[in-house]
């Protein structure tokens, strides 16, 4: 684990380091996807298409759990911790504001870890379906996961499920908007000769 970047690091070094944080996070989403019941029964082509269009959105949900509101820092999977001020200095201000707004809204639902995990599975299989070959199989998987999420929330919070579940589903278009607005942000990787 690395501590918060020292003041002596250049902006370029911070940008490279921050860019590299995404690599283990993306790999974790791939492993997570493989654990979703039914995901690996899709064709490899469709698995790849769902991951390519849905990973950013899953990362945004994941990001909410990596954010420390008291310290105003974000800790990535490789242990790197960044204060928000550092991330803003990288030019990520608009993306950060959007993620924090989203985190606040999602935070009000107070999801348990298993509810959050099932929600992330729904997010992944509900991403942009253009390019999917077997639409029927993906839609069947979507419906199964959405039913499971509804069932889990209803069993755990029978008095609240009528309000929480629709609010959860309303986050799906928010995530697609975040993806469309921000996934073209630039990262930088140093290539050593």
């Amino acid at each position: 684990a690395c501590p918060v970047s020292a003041a002596s690091r250049s902006g370029q070094q911070i940008w490279e380091s921050f860019s590299q944080c995404f690599t283990p996070a993306v790999r974790e989403v791939v492993e997570f996807a493989k654990g979703i019941p039914g995901f690996q029964e899709l064709s490899q082509h469709d698995q790849v298409m769902l991951l390519k269009s849905g990973t950013f959105q899953v990362l945004m949900v994941r990001f909410c759990t990596m954010f420390n509101p008291e310290e105003r820092t974000v800790t990535f999977l490789n242990g790197q911790t960044y204060p928000l001020s550092t991330l803003r200095a990288l030019g990520m201000g608009a993306l950060l504001d959007a993620i924090f707004d989203f985190s606040e809204k999602l935070g009000t639902l107070r999801l348990e870890p298993d509810e959050m995990a099932l929600f992330m599975a729904v997010v992944l299989v509900s991403a942009d379906l253009s390019g999917i070959v077997d639409m029927g199989a993906v839609e069947q998987l979507q419906e199964g996961l959405i039913r499971a999420l509804h069932s889990l929330i209803h069993c755990r919070r029978p008095d609240e499920s009528a309000s929480i579940f629709p609010k959860l589903l309303l986050h799906l278009p928010d995530l697609r908007t975040l993806n469309n607005l921000h996934s073209d942000k630039l990262l930088a990787f140093r290539i050593d000769s």
């Binding site: 370029q12 490279e16 860019s19 995404f22 690599t23 993306v26 790999r27 791939v30 490899q44 698995q47 790849v48 991951l51 390519k52 990973t55 950013f56 921000h182 996934s183 073209d184 942000k185 630039l186 990262l187 930088a188 990787f189 140093r190 290539i191 050593d192 000769s193």
Partner: peptide, 25 residues
């Protein structure tokens, strides 16, 4: 001098996913 490769977050995600599936084939 250091050389840098610049890519979008979307392209980086796509690259990692392609790499992962190719490695596991």
């Amino acid at each position: 001098p250091k050389t840098h490769r610049v890519m979008t977050l979307a392209d980086h995600i796509s690259h990692i996913i392609t790499q992962d599936f190719a490695r596991n084939q």
